[in-house]
Write a protein that binds this DNA or RNA. Sequence first.
DNA 1: ATGGCTTCATAGTGAAGA
Length: 254
Amino acid sequence: MKIASWNVNSLNVRLPHVLQWLEKHPVDVLALQELKLDQDKFPISAIEEAGYHAVWFGQKTYNGVALLFKGEATDVVTGIPNYADEQRRMIAATINGVRIINVYCVNGEAVDSAKFAYKREWFAALNAFVAQEMQQHEQVVLLGDFNIAPADLDVYDAEKWQGKILCSTDERHWFQQLLALGLHDSFRSKRPEDVQYTWWDYRMNMFKRKLGLRIDHILVSTALKETIVTVDVDEIARSWERPSDHAPITLEVA
DNA sequence: ATGGCTTCATAGTGAAGA
């Protein structure tokens, strides 16, 4: 089974990219973040023509998440339960017996900002939800854009980013708290030493200069960790014309 | 450089992303 995640930074702009990518990478599940389109504007026809079903939680201008899949999705949850959130950042479903939780985590802007307080509160709510899900499901995948680089190895210039948004001690602690629920960073557990980024700033030719951050992740429960075959970031999609600033990441489990 | 680039939005000395 292949499960992928991609922050597309507007599905309106990136639909051709998504369709082209799926043609080359016919994964079983593709989790999308930052749709930036309203619930009734989701391009379901084009996605069905490509051979996929979908569930989505869309929002005008910002946020928005979706799951594209070949099988069947049950027990769909949109938005973190018991957490009032104006921003649509989470969709979960059970697909092929695997509980898939797709998240577009809060950016946070700067560590002293009001948005950082929202990020803190949002991660606490996510943690409580995932803890519940872990009790009900053996095979759990928590994936998406976490907006956290877990370690200095995941940052092109750790000294410059030290304590900054995406790299602060608080954020890394929230990431560890998710792992403490019994999840594993699939990329890092499979490739402990590799320098591999998933996001490169549009500005200053950061992609061409190979200067990025690893902030998109696929976390898996212990039962799934044992069956990991590969974890790959597709930098080719980042090199396409008018690309998203994030690259897709794909997990294959036996 | 509180920058850069890209998106969506509006027509802003823009807002937000990461």
